[in-house]
Design a protein around this nucleic acid. Sequence first.
DNA 1: ACATTAAATTCGA
DNA 2: TCGAATTTAATGT
Length: 223
Amino acid sequence: MKQRRPESLHDVLLRVSWLQNLPVTARTRVVADAYEVQYAAGDTVVRKGDVANSWIGVADGLLKVSAVYRSGKVVMFTGIPDGGWVGEGAVIKRELRKYDIVAMRESRVIHLPGPTFRWLLDTSIEFNHFIIAHLNERLGQYIGMVETDRLTDPVARLARAIASLFNPILYPGTHALLTVSQGELGELAGLSRQTTNASVRKLAADGLLDIEYGGVLVRTCLP
DNA sequence: ACATTAAATTCGA
DNA sequence: TCGAATTTAATGT
């Protein structure tokens, strides 16, 4: 039997970054309305064309966002790691989901119902600040992705994939551990596990990160 | 594709 | 509850 003690949803919510700065009224409503769903590896969290009825946060695990055009061409591949949030676009505009979101491994995700999300937008300035920063960051990633598509160097592709996972976490500290295996990184960067391994080693040799078992330790050595 | 190594589980005290 | 033995998962070549 598994003997891990599951953290309660309440405890998970306490750690949610954008929730910290919210006034009590907003926070209590979020705590009351948010619910959690467990997904197994490979499960679809949202499917393109679904009605968007919640904003999605990753409490634990790793999600993959992908958009596919009618030809079957994949336009976008992004990973959402612990602490990341996705899917606000369709919720804000009351549209159908534009992307598929699939769990890459067993994941616990928080669903924040659309009405609650929109209520936050309408009532909380703090929440709006977070959303603006969030969208802005997403835009930056999106622009970067356009050129990554043409990028042929696997090391550069991998670096982009890692950066996109690392960004949303916003660590103020010295460095951050990303618990994403090389196999998973490869899937996100569009590389084989083999070239991924060679590429992470290159990045490690350049001192940009340290390789850990089951993840990488990103060194934030900004000037 | 295979060999190696790290980590997670099981099992016996 | 501890630790050795076994299984599973990730890494490295």
